[in-house]
Write a protein that binds this DNA or RNA. Structure first.
Length: 441
RNA sequence: GCGGCCAUAGCUCAGUUGGUUAGAGCACAAGAUUGUGAUUCUUGGGGUCGCGGGUUCGAGUCCCGUUGGCCGCCCCA
């Protein structure tokens, strides 16, 4: 069709698409509610500086940003974290700890659309503020697992890769690197999965003399660290260094793994230090949810960001959070055949003889609707045969038949569309009879 | 921001070396059938062949541009 199209990377949600999206949202909300998280929402449009402060000036290239009519530099929200930090920071003194909040919202990023990545997408965000200990990680990782398991996905479908930026910094420090070097190395580590050994080339080119000579050894240690997949191997590796900060991190690792395992979710967790997450504001544990079999990008990601609330002008408040998107989740559900069938069936379909009967039918139709039943009927006068066909196709369980014969007797015929049985009930008992008939099924 | 592939009905697609009025299946609607749902049959609506330009006697078909989609790269909060 000629005319207007939706903008690139934006989606129309036709009823069937909408119902799929609702299924995803509903599952997330159910999980969050079971975990005692409270739902909030916030403006779609925010001051541009909110994002620049958090992520740096370069972020603007990937934002839907513009100057509003009042001359304000604004941006459509690309994520929830700065907003929720602002909200929590503003009222931190009055909020009962731990603060467990979640939201389901739409976000906008000015990027080229790709598989699993659009310009407008929805995310579930969950965050815990005010808890510095690994108890917050346990709670959030368990919630993340439930946000996926709630669809029927199992440990064979996805896993949570757990890593730790602090552990990396302490480890790189133990290898003799300062903070600036460690940051550069983490960037290389982030790329390693895709680029292989070449990921370290840039860092290597900044070295000379002894430091260059010893670098292959260090790379070996670093890539070895990335390949660790069990807590035992991690303990073994770290023991050699005898450093208190490394050992302290290990205590937290044990607590997280023990907690998640005690919840029966141990099989979902993989130790995987190759996960470091792109942006640098994470301060401790980081984790991502991955499709186990497939080629999909990360399903969800999160971690601890203890400095961000303060950086955005709030109090010093520790925080952990994660986000999970609807696009990749939807693709995964599709691949696994876990998309629910689209059903719009009413409970009752009214079959109406003609105009005189229609008035009587309307009275009952509305009484049934007001009583909470889903009721449909044809707008136009149709042959009975057509109406029964329509009733059947609608998926209704019952047909109510308003014919001249029935009304003359003061009754309505209830036809069970499944077993094709029929019975007549008095007009004044229609609601009760429908309730009883539906309950009997 | 860079590169590759693609675009014909609501959907899936066919359309010959460029040649008359662009087709099929599915879906949708009506009828056969004025008190009971299947199947079947008949019929119908729906297309500026994504858009714009060019080549040609003639373009869905060839060329250029553009928009959109898909897939990589960059990035991924």
């Amino acid at each position: 069709m000629a005319g207007f199209q939706s903008l690139p990377g934006f989606r129309d949600f036709y009823p069937e698409d909408f119902s799929r999206r609702q299924h995803i949202f509903r599952t997330w909300r159910q999980a969050a509610s079971a975990f005692g998280f409270q739902e909030y929402d916030a403006p779609v449009l925010e001051p541009l500086d909110l994002y620049k402060t958090k992520s740096g000036d370069e972020i603007e290239a990937q934002l839907f940003s513009f100057t509003d009519k009042g001359g304000r530099e604004v941006a459509l929200r690309p994520e929830m974290t700065p907003t929720v930090c602002r909200m929590v920071g503003a009222k931190a003194g009055a909020l009962k700890r731990p603060i467990k909040w979640f939201s389901v919202a739409e976000f906008y990023r000015y990027e080229r659309a790709q598989k699993g990545r659009l310009r407008a997408f929805n995310q579930f965000n969950a965050d815990i503020f005010g808890e510095a200990g690994p108890e917050a990680e346990i709670e959030l990782i368990a919630l993340l697992i439930q946000c996926l398991a709630g669809f029927g996905l199992t440990k064979d479908d996805f896993s949570i890769r757990l890593s730790d930026r602090d552990l990396w910094f302490f480890y790189l420090e133990a290898l003799g690197y300062n903070l600036v070097e460690s940051r550069a190395l983490l960037t290389a580590i982030d790329r390693y999965e895709k680029a292989g050994d070449k990921a370290f080339d840039e860092f290597k080119s900044s070295l000379s003399g002894d430091r260059l000579e010893e670098f292959p050894h260090k790379v070996q240690a670093i890539t070895g660290f990335m390949k660790i997949r069990t807590i035992e191997a991690l303990v073994e590796e770290i023991r050699m260094f005898h450093r208190p900060n490394l050992n302290a991190r290990l205590d937290d690792w044990r607590k997280v793994l023990a907690g998640v395992t005690a919840m029966g979710l141990g099989d979902f967790i993989t130790v995987d230090l190759s996960v470091v997450r792109g942006l640098a504001y994470y301060t401790g544990f980081v984790f991502e949810a991955f499709d186990r079999k497939g080629d999909l990008r990360a399903l969800a990601g999160g971690g601890r960001y203890n400095d961000l609330v303060k950086k955005l002008g709030g109090p010093d408040l520790p925080a952990v959070g994660f986000a999970i998107g609807d696009v990749t989740t939807g693709l995964l559900l599709e691949q696994r055949g876990l998309t629910p069938a689209y059903v719009t069936a009413p409970d009752v379909y009214a079959v109406i003889g003609g105009e005189p009967e229609r008035q009587a039918a309307f009275a009952d139709i509305h009484a049934l609707r007001a009583a909470g039943f889903r009721v449909d009927y044809p707008f136009k006068e149709l042959a009975f045969g057509k109406q029964f066909k329509a009733a059947s196709e609608s998926g209704a369980k019952l047909a109510l038949i308003y014919g001249g014969d029935e009304l003359a007797k003061g009754v309505v015929k209830i036809r069970n569309l499944t077993d094709r049985s029929e019975r007549e009930v008095p007009r004044d008992q229609v609601v009760a009879s429908v309730r009883e008939t539906l309950a009997a099924r």
